[in-house]
């Protein structure tokens, strides 16, 4: 059971290749395997292409992009746009906002999710089915956009960080993953701790949490990536540019609301520099995630499987 805490184990299990089902493959099956590898290579190419294309565009001249010459490699090599975007103070301000929102929101989310998950993982707790029901029902029915908007306004959270970090603090999916994890911890440990005189708080902080480092790391990543990527709550509840996260900065640029004028170019070529500047901003926005991705990917996979592999 505790082996679930090891994301490597879970990933290895996922990667297991079934033993060959026949001693000698038929001709048809050998042909299929060639086709199969070809299809999968094609899938890889199609998935990667948009990334390569964006990177190539970000290093190209605008002229080369508008005349349709940029695909896999940069044409009319140009790093001036990187300089322009990176010297835009609003871009960095919004980038910093993203970092702050992500850190605060993830911290709040973890405190709420962990404590609730631990309580509802205790089968003897009276009222437990009701508590679980309250959480799960919100997966299938929610108040909807308008009542939420009215509520956030009424609470005075518009144009504050709280509108971003509070309304989505608990993901029920993550909650259920943590609950399943806590349920799988050996009960004997907690019993022993309670006989040694630890209270529920002591057990929770000194026994359970240290044993749950792997699942906590996974959940932190789940939340952090979600908050890092989110844009709509910020778009909905923030009107002041200096509060925007970088996703809203990018969205406004794509929608044409941020003119290139603010970035040191004249209004005349605003439309023209668009594609190149967009590409640069996209690359700068996706860079942190893409560079962390190889290291965090396995935690995500194990997180999704934490509940499913049990038993």
């Amino acid at each position: 059971m505790v082996t679930l805490a090891d994301p490597d184990r879970a990933t290895r299990r996922l990667a297991q290749v079934p033993a060959p089902r026949t001693l000698k493959d038929t001709r048809g099956y050998r042909a299929f395997r060639v086709v199969n590898v070809t299809i999968l290579l094609l899938v890889v190419a199609v998935v990667l292409y948009p990334f390569v294309n964006i990177i190539a565009q970000s290093f190209s001249s605008e002229g080369a992009i508008t005349s349709g010459q940029v695909n896999l490699v940069p044409r009319g090599f140009n790093i001036e746009t990187y300089r322009v975007v990176m010297s835009d103070s609003m871009f960095w301000l919004n980038y910093r906002n993203t970092v702050v929102y992500t850190v605060v929101a993830t911290a709040i989310a973890m405190v709420l999710t962990t404590s609730f998950a631990y309580a509802i993982s205790k089968k003897h707790l009276k009222g437990r089915p009701v508590l679980i029901g309250i959480a799960v029902f919100t997966m299938f029915f929610n108040g909807g956009l308008i009542p939420n908007y009215v509520l956030i306004n009424e609470l005075g959270m518009t144009n504050t960080m709280w509108a971003i970090v509070l309304p989505n603090a608990i993901s029920v999916f993550n909650l259920l993953v943590m609950k399943a994890f806590f349920e799988n911890l050996p009960e004997e440990l907690e019993e022993a701790a309670s006989i040694d005189g630890l209270t529920t708080y002591g057990i929770f902080f000194r026994i359970v949490l240290p044993l749950s480092k792997a699942v906590i790391a996974t959940m932190v990543l789940f939340y952090a990536v979600t908050f890092w990527n989110s844009w709509f709550t910020a778009f909905l509840y923030l009107d002041r540019a200096e509060l925007y996260p970088v996703t809203v900065y990018l969205r406004n640029m794509i929608a044409g609301a941020t003119t290139a004028t603010s970035m040191g170019s004249s209004a005349d070529d605003a439309a023209q520099v668009a594609a190149n500047i967009q590409a640069v901003t996209m690359v700068l926005t996706l860079l942190p995630i893409v560079s962390l991705y190889p290291f965090i990917q396995k935690y995500f996979v194990s997180g999704v499987m934490l509940g499913s592999v049990k038993g």
Binding site: S115, I134, G143, P147, P167, F204
Partner: peptide, 28 residues
Amino acid sequence: DWRLYSLVVLPLAFFLVFRYLPMLGNVI
């Protein structure tokens, strides 16, 4: 189990305020 219930208070407040209140808000 009051200690366990105390862990539930804040998350429960979250669900009531940010999930169930908007559901009621649909009366508009």
